[in-house]
Design a binder for these strands. Structure first.
Lengths: 189, 189
DNA sequence: CGTGGAGTTGAATACGATCAACACCGGTGG
DNA sequence: CCACCGGTGTTGATCGTATTCAACTCCACG
């Protein structure tokens, strides 16, 4: 049984459906640091993380990383541009830890009606998260963004270098370090 | 013929399909300033703009507006939270100009398989735009964001008060005003 | 006419970026 | 086992950009 099936299907499904799903999925073991998608690539895959940790990120004009999202166990990650845009992917995707993933061929969705409903459902949820992220970036001061991050990704602080969290929050490592200093100082005052 | 059908359907469709679509849509005339959705509302609708101009926005802790998106003619606007989140809508939606819209009941999508494919398609495109917006907010300096805005929403500069564009870009009206001053000064130098 | 909202400009301020120095490990190789 | 090293995080000084606050102009609209 593929983990993605659990994630994707809400109820029971007929055998041919399951089989088709299974055929669109390939299991993969990725080493720490391994790159799954590069900017400009035209991919057809989404990645479901069974164990480990992936991330997606961009490089700006100055070559600085900006982390788009983290994907720990049970999360789905991919770059929409990689199959929607002529220019290919906007993001890089790589592994922060050794991970076991299920690579999911997107063409599945265009082939089979039965997938559309649930795909749409999941797609809406992702969109909702993005909406919240945009709002947050525009209207929330750094400190709250950091606290929200801690809620949203519990225990990821332990697993991810701090500078990457800074990158996700849209600030420099120094800024986050100073914020954390302030926070502990506030607590002990 | 409803405009939304053109937008939504790629090819021909059978008559019952069209009829069902038509039943899920109600035409509405909205006055300038009219509010269609408030934070916390549990809506079931998306709005397709036939003419005029809508926008969605949040209010932050200090009561400041942050515009999430503009929707001129031919655009679709809605708040995903309004039907996905327990807390209801995250955004307000109102009309910046007198507008003619088609309100689309979301339940349509859950009822009828035939809609899923195209809904998924459109949903992906919206998601893609959001992805780009997030990247842009994190990694692009104000000046470029403004120029990108001009590309993305041609002629909207004429129709929208400048302070709202500032709000969309995530800065104060003063900051945008100064940037524009710099830009014209650059041109004439 | 006037009145208020929109935009511009300037001065002071705040916040994060940048640059640089340093402490703290967690390996690696001698 | 230890010395060394590179990467990570902290801290401080300085700089730059956007914010805030305030004053002023300009219209659009009553």
């Amino acid at each position: 049984m593929l983990s993605f099936q659990n994630y994707f299907l809400q109820g029971a499904a007929d055998p041919t459906f399951l089989q088709e799903l299974e055929e669109a999925i390939t299991l993969r073991q990725v080493a720490k640091g391994q790159v799954l998608l590069r900017k400009g690539d035209k991919g057809r895959e989404h990645y479901f993380v069974k164990s480990g940790l992936l991330r997606s990120y961009t490089l700006d004009a100055k070559g600085k990383e900006h982390i788009f999202m983290f994907a720990p166990e049970g999360w789905l990650i991919g770059d929409i541009g990689s199959f929607l845009s002529d220019k290919g992917a906007d993001l890089y995707i790589d592994a922060l830890e050794e991970s076991e993933i299920e690579a999911l061929d997107n063409r599945l969705f265009s082939r089979r009606d039965a997938f559309h409903a649930e795909a749409l459902n999941k797609s809406s949820r992702r969109m909702y998260m993005m909406q919240k992220r945009i709002i947050s970036l525009m209207s929330t001061p750094l400190q709250e963004r950091y606290l929200d991050f801690l809620d949203m990704y519990p225990n990821l602080v332990q697993r991810v270098p701090q500078k990457m969290i800074a990158s996700y929050l849209g600030v420099t490592p120094e800024a986050l370090s100073k914020l954390r200093g302030d926070l502990t100082r506030q607590k002990n005052a």
